[in-house]
Design a protein around this nucleic acid. Structure first.
Lengths: 132, 132
DNA sequence: TTAATCCCTATCAAATTTCTAGGTATTATC
DNA sequence: GATAATACCTAGAAATTTGATAGGGATTAA
């Protein structure tokens, strides 16, 4: 059970944006430089985060990306659910599992899913960039 | 972030063993039949669980597999750590990450790792087969 | 001796993830 | 108005991981 690179790298990119919150937009080349990611790869991560309304962007010369809300109002849970396309650790949590009622292990996944979300929703982006 | 089939199926096999705890060994073909898994695949899962001392086996005719401890003394955490080869959701939790001190996101993974283990260690195999 | 069982390890196939690449649309600035 | 800097979109190559199959060996109750 591993978090994907998308999640790990995307969270770092979000930290970078948080660090400069309020200073206007950061360009893709700049963020790529700070996070040591290729521009093309980072671009895809940012597009996911934008689709999920966590960041926004302005186009054209001197454009770039920026957080849509202040860092203290964005949780790590939101960010990872966006990048990982949900944190359901087993498929029966997403789709409608018809054996839910008789399945001996369903309860485990439900509890674990709850614990993961509770943990991650309790950490704000601000905490990360301010070192707790 | 998905749990592997190994984890899901292996836990089901453990439930089967728990259901018959104290009744002697269950053969591979029997467990395979109950869990709807191929014998050859299930065999690999059981070999992992055996290596990690959660189950034991007797060979030869009328041999089979059985829990090494009573179901109430085996946690789901132990089982999944065995099958998943650890529950470290990122590699820096296992190996020695040299950037631990400066990494902005390390704290997140550490907290999450703790939450996952705490949750799963709090559920015993007995609870699963007795329906809470 | 036989048949039923666990044990070991190699390998194939499929799926997923990671990353690269090329081109398009937009816009501030000169 | 031209230019250069930017974000946006989509296809797909490459690498890795996962899931599953297969064959043969060792052990032991009957």
């Amino acid at each position: 059970m591993k978090l994907s690179s998308k999640g790990r790298y995307g969270l770092k990119a979000m930290c970078e944006l948080a660090k400069h919150y309020g200073e206007g937009a950061l360009s893709l080349p700049y963020i790529a430089g700070e996070t040591f990611l290729s521009e093309k790869y980072l671009e895809q991560l940012l597009s996911v985060l934008k689709k999920d309304d966590l960041i926004d962007a302005t186009r054209g010369a001197s454009g770039g990306y920026f957080l849509k809300r202040p860092p203290e109002e964005i949780s790590v849970g939101e960010i990872l659910r966006s990048l990982e396309n949900g944190l359901e650790i087993v498929d029966c949590l997403s789709g409608d599992c018809k054996n839910k009622s008789t399945c001996q292990t369903y309860g485990v996944w439900a509890k674990l899913y709850g614990a993961i979300n509770k943990c991650l929703d309790g950490i704000s982006l601000k905490e990360l960039v301010e070192g707790e």
